[in-house]
């Protein structure tokens, strides 16, 4: 029987070259989705195969890798991907945002500011921001070519007409370098401002949909909005129950069946770092309230 043998970081060199070329084009054309010949990975499509391929193509023995899912290093899929690279590339792994050189993420951007030299790799399920408005690739590609984004504005405006607000709270579309409308992956819109003018390189991999795109460092990323309905980044009234942070994205923890809730940081490394530095929360959450902050 053919016993499998694998290359450093799993992918063969030809595949890495193909992905590397796509990454360079993606950086050169910020926000544009470069088609690439995504491979069948030993994990399911939709579970981070795009991010895993991008990470595998850039990772070297000198890297320190952090993997998060929902902001946490301890969710099962994050653990599974981290173990995959520890095994196939032998790289050092970390949960510290600051110590990492490469961070692969699903659904969050770390709270701690990223620095130059770091690479943030996003796992992307549906890379096409126009897909839910127009299912045909031939059509959406034409719209991007002509920078014809009226349909997206109509959709956002219809939300306002119906709900009084833009009813998109995650995967909130952005315009990159004043040209391409881009899907930021399903991060909460709370995280959108972190993408703008970020010192780190941001790479996006969509395995099933076979697309790679990028935001170079120090690049303008603007959340789509209207003058009379500007983009807002909502925030919780209560601070984190564990570390007292008032500037972080919070998970709602249901503590009993009588309506009790508490709110704790979704970014576990950020929360633990603050607690280690002596910050404390109340440990019991106040009744939930939200406020809108500009």
């Amino acid at each position: 029987m053919n016993a499998p043998t694998y290359n450093f970081a799993y992918l063969d060199e030809q595949t890495k070259r193909m992905i590397r070329r796509a990454i360079l084009k993606a950086i050169a054309i910020p926000g544009y989705q470069v088609p690439f010949a995504s491979r069948e990975m030993p994990m399911p499509y939709g579970w981070g195969t795009g991010g895993v391929q991008v990470t595998a193509a850039i990772l070297g023995p000198q890297d320190v890798l952090k993997v998060i899912d929902q902001g946490s290093d301890d969710t099962t899929n994050a653990i599974s991907i981290r173990k995959f690279f520890a095994k196939t590339a032998g790289v050092e792994t970390t949960t510290s945002t600051d110590a990492a050189t490469v961070i692969q993420t699903r659904h969050r951007i770390p709270e701690a500011p990223l620095r130059a030299g770091q690479v943030l790799v996003y796992q992307v399920p549906i890379p096409e921001p126009l897909r839910f408005l127009e299912p045909r690739e031939t059509e959406t590609r034409r719209m991007h070519a002509l920078a014809e984004y009226g349909l997206m504005h109509v959709k956002l405006y219809e939300d306002i007409a119906r709900f009084g607000h833009i009813a998109t709270s995650y995967a909130y579309p952005v315009k990159v370098n004043a040209r391409y409308v881009m899907d930021p992956s399903p991060t909460p819109k709370f995280d959108n401002p972190k993408m703008d003018n970020c010192p780190a390189l941001q790479l996006f991999g969509a395995g099933r949909e076979k697309r790679i795109y990028a935001i170079p460092p120090y690049t303008s990323v603007v959340s789509l909005d209207f003058e009379d309905h500007p983009f807002t980044r909502y925030k919780f009234d209560a601070p984190c129950a564990l570390c007292g942070a008032e500037d972080s994205y919070l998970d709602e923890i249901v503590t009993d069946d009588k309506g009790s809730r508490m709110f704790v940081c979704s970014d576990t490394d950020y929360c633990e770092g603050r607690q280690a530095a002596g910050h404390r929360g109340v440990e019991s959450a106040a009744p939930h309230k939200e406020a809108v902050h500009g």
Binding site: N7, F8, E13, K16, R17, R20, I23, L24, I27, A28, A57, I58, L59, G60, P61, Q62, A116, G117, L201, P216, P217
Partner: peptide, 19 residues
């Protein structure tokens, strides 16, 4: 070293393209 040199050269080129 084909594998590791290609990786580190790529990172140099990627950083160059990003900066």
């Amino acid at each position: 070293d084909k594998v590791l040199a290609a990786q580190s050269t790529f990172r140099t080129v990627m950083e160059a393209m990003a900066r």
